Amino acid sequence: MFNIHTHIILTSIKIDLPSNEDIRNSFIKRGFQSVGTCATKTPINSKGDCHVYSLPYLFDDLLFLSNCFQGGQFNKVRMLMMLDRYSFEEKLFKIISEDFPFLQK
């Protein structure tokens, strides 16, 4: 059971961040059956974020949710913190209202 969020500030050295699929596959190859991923890169200021979590998600809070969230069942989550460099769209709020039935904060 895990929930990992990393924030990367890229330097002058070129680093290619892996895709969501690459990250998911690396966990699956290590024996984790069901993994959610959300990796984003901001080309303007050379920053990146990666969020990887085990499914089913068994924590009470979910921090730093971003626009790349694809949905899932998060029945235990009571507190959600969203953070992204891009504005949130209505579609994301619809997914959240359906996938977080017990959200309080």
Rank of each mutant, 00 (worst) to 15 (best):
D60S: 15
S19E: 11
E89H: 09
K41L: 13
F59L: 15
V35F: 00
S19Q: 10
S66F: 02
S12M: 13
P18T: 11
K41I: 14
R24C: 08
Y86T: 10
V77Q: 02
S54V: 04
D61T: 15
N75P: 10
D60G: 14
N67F: 01
S46W: 11
S87T: 14
H7R: 14
K91G: 06
F102Q: 14
N67G: 09
P18G: 03
F69P: 02
R24P: 06
M82F: 03
A39P: 06
M82K: 05
F93Q: 00
N67C: 03
Q70W: 09
C68H: 10
K91L: 08
T40I: 12
K76I: 04
L17N: 10
I15F: 07
H7M: 10
D16T: 12
I9P: 05
G36V: 02
R24W: 08
S66V: 03
K47D: 15
T6M: 09
D22Y: 06
F32I: 04
P101K: 11
F100I: 04
N3I: 03
Y53T: 01
T6R: 15
T42M: 12
P18H: 06
L92M: 06
F59H: 09
F27W: 07
E89L: 09
F88V: 01
D84E: 10
K105L: 15
P56D: 14
F88W: 00
E21P: 02
